[in-house]
Design a protein around this nucleic acid. Sequence first.
DNA 1: ACGTGCGGGACACCCCGTTAGT
DNA 2: ACTAACGGGGTGTCCCGCACGT
Lengths: 203, 203, 203, 203
Amino acid sequence: MTVTQAARSDAMRQRILDAAFPEIYRNGFQAASLNAIAAAAGVSKGALFHHFAGKQALGYALLDEVVARFLRDRWLAPLAQTADPLSDIQACFRRNIGEDVASGSVPLGCPLNNLAQEMSPLDEGFRTRIDRLYTAWRHDVAQALERGQRAGTVRGDADPRGVATLVVLSQMGIWGTGKSSQDPVLMTQAGEALCAYLEALRP
Amino acid sequence: MTVTQAARSDAMRQRILDAAFPEIYRNGFQAASLNAIAAAAGVSKGALFHHFAGKQALGYALLDEVVARFLRDRWLAPLAQTADPLSDIQACFRRNIGEDVASGSVPLGCPLNNLAQEMSPLDEGFRTRIDRLYTAWRHDVAQALERGQRAGTVRGDADPRGVATLVVLSQMGIWGTGKSSQDPVLMTQAGEALCAYLEALRP
Amino acid sequence: MTVTQAARSDAMRQRILDAAFPEIYRNGFQAASLNAIAAAAGVSKGALFHHFAGKQALGYALLDEVVARFLRDRWLAPLAQTADPLSDIQACFRRNIGEDVASGSVPLGCPLNNLAQEMSPLDEGFRTRIDRLYTAWRHDVAQALERGQRAGTVRGDADPRGVATLVVLSQMGIWGTGKSSQDPVLMTQAGEALCAYLEALRP
Amino acid sequence: MTVTQAARSDAMRQRILDAAFPEIYRNGFQAASLNAIAAAAGVSKGALFHHFAGKQALGYALLDEVVARFLRDRWLAPLAQTADPLSDIQACFRRNIGEDVASGSVPLGCPLNNLAQEMSPLDEGFRTRIDRLYTAWRHDVAQALERGQRAGTVRGDADPRGVATLVVLSQMGIWGTGKSSQDPVLMTQAGEALCAYLEALRP
DNA sequence: ACGTGCGGGACACCCCGTTAGT
DNA sequence: ACTAACGGGGTGTCCCGCACGT
């Protein structure tokens, strides 16, 4: 009983977020329509407004909850405790590129990068949240590389933070390339170019 | 008479494009307002629709003319006939990053990349034009690298196309990083990470 | 020919104002619906937006044009050149009260006073325009009284500006009384109380 | 227990009314937001609807309780048993005008008059309640004047009801004038014009 | 070639009220 | 007695594009 009301509310909130994600992912934040999101979620606009103070708040929640989880699952978790970060980073890129290519759908790029490019200069709240995610990303990659250096799987003279910056930056570029080229070969080739660079960091 | 009329017409067309560029650069294509563009150009909306069939056509023309020229001047021309491409690419990145950092304004990223991220998945005409520009970019960089290999300034075992892909992709990533971090240091650091990578390609 | 376009435009603008007046008169400015106004005028909302930058601008124009003319015709013109202002002011009150009572419709009060009560504290632009009208009103009444003093129809020891203030203030109060009482007798009695006061100002 | 519960309930009801008064006073009844009122009262909307059947009922209660008390304290009580009504009415106007002027805040007029102007033509329930208050007001002033006539402080040939009507009507007008002019001098001058009129009613 | 008037539609916002639950 | 989730509707704004007319 006590669980019913609160649980139903959270479920509806989640339904809205789940419906908002693809809508915003496809059309961008500004062009996304709250009407469409509400319709996709099977929710009235009143309910949407009840759960989120406005479009901005919905976008913030999307970043803080959905996109952050997306990032954690796809990019951060695989490196959490690795002793051979170069291999795991390479694997991570190859796997994610492979999945995107295999899905065959129109390449929509990286959800986080999409929001970053569109909203960072327009809304400080967005920018802060996005920057926090990218900073965490770079931090985790750098930490993994340091662990690799201690484990002897990464050259000691490599600069973990510089490499981490380039890895994350390359992720942006690779998916951006895929988006405008719609060419799986080119995207794969871009990924391999990065992997080759990483290969050179082995002892 | 005839030449005057035609010249005036072209000038007005150019005024519209020049006004459209910052408007679209700042707000994105979809969020940009034709009213605002016409007002900024000091032109009636009738004139705008006379010169361009619609918003889409204006965007296409912007890409084909303004953005293409922008790309040529800032990134392609410096590599046109170089015999030491690595140095020139490094210089190019450092100069462009330096200018952006020095300008001190809110970082709006790369105009071409902005349109690529926003419009590539939504409009095939945009995607084609954008892809054409990026392909040319990669091609010119690859050619410059080959020239460097022949001149002995680039290691012979480097893959010109792979490196070119990574160079262009890094440009996307560096400016994307700058946009969401608003951190000149980070952006500079990212540029240096790329320069270090290029340094390793010298014989 | 040359007159056609501009004339049609002005006619439509006037249609909108004419439709806006009763809508705002009845419901107040804030509660008035632009949808309803556009529908009553037989005009699309796009056209409405073309002629007036927004609801506020429509309200301003209504004050500056329609209400100002209303005031001039009903209250200012009759006193324009009178030499016996007390009689003319009394006649003016009696006539206007009589018309309102005879119309039999629900008493909606004075359009200017309605806007004054609602919008003066909320919007400085409204307040300024309203104050300008009331100031002109008081000024014209005071001038008429001075003319009467020179003509010997008004006691010389009367204070024209003080009396004018009370006359205008009474107009507000009389129509306010009529609105809430919906009692023609009471409204007439209020008018007569003012007339009696004015009567005491004769030499 | 029972008394505690009932007392708490009444206290909450009062909190709502106390929060509703300024909100409606400032924005008008129609533009006032129940959400804002509930928030200002620190009460959930459910509680609000528990105590009042709807917005209308809340408005009625506000008139019947808060505004009526306001009227009684500021305007009726001072005349309750006076034998020199003219002086007391003058004093009442001067004090109330003085307080409003001294407060220095944006002049929001008379709460009762505000509701009268806005709601009288729109809602019969409002109109009835407002009319009742104004009728009582006029009645009390007339009675005080009659008392003055009997006490010899008011001329015997004055018409108590006519004068009372003009007094109340002037109150409306004076505060209306203050609202749109935002000019303390003008408001004071208006009050003095009324006081001068009353002065002429002394024997 | 260029300007104006105008149309239809979509947008985010947010309101008031009810119902299911505590 | 009181709360929170939720529904449906209406708001002002403003956009893009067309059809005139100059």
